[in-house]
Every structure is written in C-alpha cells, then in structure tokens.
Amino acid sequence: MNDLLLTGLLMLIKLGMILAVLLTMAAYLVLAERKLLARMQRRYGPNRVGFGGMLQPLADLIKLLTKEDFLPAQADKWLFLLAPGLAAVTALLAFAVVPFAPPLELFGRQLPMVVCDLNVGILYFFGLSSLAVYGVALGGWASNSKYALLGALRAMGQMLSYELAMGLSIVPVILMARSFSLTEIVQAQASLPFALTNPLAFGIFFIAALAESKRTPFDLPEAENELVAGFHTEYSGMRFGLFFVGEYLNLVVLGAIITSLFLGGWHGPLLPPIIWFLGKVLAVAFVFIWIRGTLPRLRYDQLMAFGWKALLPLALVNLLATGGILLWLGGAS
C-alpha cells in the first residue's frame, strides 16, 4: 500500500511539474516572441511591466481575465464555448508521449521521464494533432461570422494537406529507429541525430510543422489583412486567451517533437540531459519566431500547390530511398 502511495505521489508530482513548466513556457514564449520580433524590427518590445518586461505575461493574463466574455448573436453557444478549450487541450495532451530526459533513479525505483511511453507514441501525437483542427474549425463555424468561417475553412484545408506530408516524412524515422515509441526513437539517436542522417525528412517535417502550427509563412487561417483575425475574430477575453495559449503550447510541443524525432532528444555531451532537451526545444521555437520575423505570407493557392506538388512527392521519394538504403545496408532483417 505504501509502495502504491509513493508511486502515485511521484506520478502526481511529475504531472504537476510538467503542467507548470509547459504553461509557463507557453506564457513566456509569447513574451519572447514579442521581444524578438521587436528586436528584428528595431523596436524594444514590451519593457514596462516588471524588470525588462518580465511580468508582461502576468499583466496580459489579468487583462484577459477581466475582459467581457462576449457571445455573438446567433452563435452556436455550446460549440462556441467549447472550441477554445479543445484547441488548448489537444496541444497539452500531445506532450504526454514526449520523453524529456532518461529515466530517473528515485527511492530505488526507475521513474521514466515521460508521462506515458506508449508503443504507438508517434501515432498518438498524430491523432491529437489531427484533432487540433477541430478547435479552430468549430470555433470559426460557431462564431457565425464570415471572416471566422473563412478562417476555419482555410485552417481545415491547410492542416489536412500538410498532415499527409508530415506523416510521410516521419516514416523514414520510424524505419531507422524501428519503433513507434518516442523513447526508443530518441535512444536510436544516441550517436547521431536523424537530422544529420536524413536531412530531407527533417526539412519536410519542419515545414509541415510550421503549417500545422498556422504560423508565418502559413498563417492564412488568421491572415490579418484579409480576415481581420480569422477563426478567432469573434472571441474575447480569456476564450481568445485560450486559443492563444493553445497556439504557443503547440509551439512548445512541436519543438519537443522535432527535438525527439530529429535532433537527438535529450542526448548531448557535458550538460545534463534535461538542459539539452530544453535548449533544443527553445532553439526550435526561436527558429519559428525568426521565420515569422523574416518571411512574407504565402498565397493560398501557393500553399496548396507547395503542399501537394512539392512536399508530398518529396516525402514519398525520401521514404522509398530510405527504405532502399536500409535494405541495402542490411538494416532490415
């Protein structure tokens, strides 16, 4: 009984810490993005609240919570209220399969540093990322507004198109690691990260991840100069905040997935594994922000053509080539 209690307690502590770290990271990524974008545009960015603007996320939170929670006339009430939560929860749940450090020895037992090491971990991530579109789609539809609906339609088309390329780009990784489990994929990269052994898959996955997270240059669902704010035009207060949190949680989770699949996860010399993992995740997030500060937005037809005519065939060719090389090397037996 005592044993069970201890295990449960450790589990709760782990879950609480992951939740706290993820939400804090999402909040401070908002600040980091605003600061970095400002610097890239020769501005200072938010620097009034707290030391150098460090308390800005808190101020934003208080502001959002005190705003009126507005429900548009003729909106579909339940779906309108549900959609932002759906967007945030799918992003949060996806982190469950990401291993962020090797197992820890604690009180004479092994504590795996992952919420749940599913043997279909990577498919679980895919399931959740394909469900993430419902938050956006239903929110846009339930708002009963033309702009929001157009944003939702764009989001659905875009995420459906890029999910295929994304899925095909990780099949080579699964072939090389010979497992669906993210922990085993990370362990397979102990000597060399897959970003070096299969750079094409890395590139395709990175671009598809950009599109999945609806960020520049693929931010058409919320293109400001065409659709006001896209799918979240009608949202106010903390419901808008939830969409926002979901978006930045998604950024953290995608960074973590890219790190685990292609950048070797927690592996790295000298520094402790958790530092390596966090550093890699933040580096990926920085590149995402950098791209936002640099690239213009694609046109919708360009986005579709690029996804279907460039990324998808490339991913297929890469899959064939990787399979062939692995067979040739005698890796498959």
């Binding site: 279909v120 498919l123 679980y124 399931g127 394909s130 469900l131 579109v133 419902y134 659905m156 088309g157």
Partner: peptide, 26 residues
C-alpha cells in the same frame, strides 16, 4: 490493439471527419 485505436483516431476522426465538416461548412 493500440495500433488500430491510433488509426481509428487519425484516419476516421482526424481526416475523414474533417473532410465531412469541410464539405458541410461550405
């Protein structure tokens, strides 16, 4: 059957139903 469960969510709930929703919304 975890694999079938994952495919059920990815293919049916995640892809086919998104297409349904897309058509219905338009």
């Amino acid at each position: 059957a975890p694999l079938i469960a994952a495919w059920e969510v990815i293919v049916y709930a995640g892809a086919i139903m998104v297409l349904f929703l897309f058509v219905i919304m338009t």
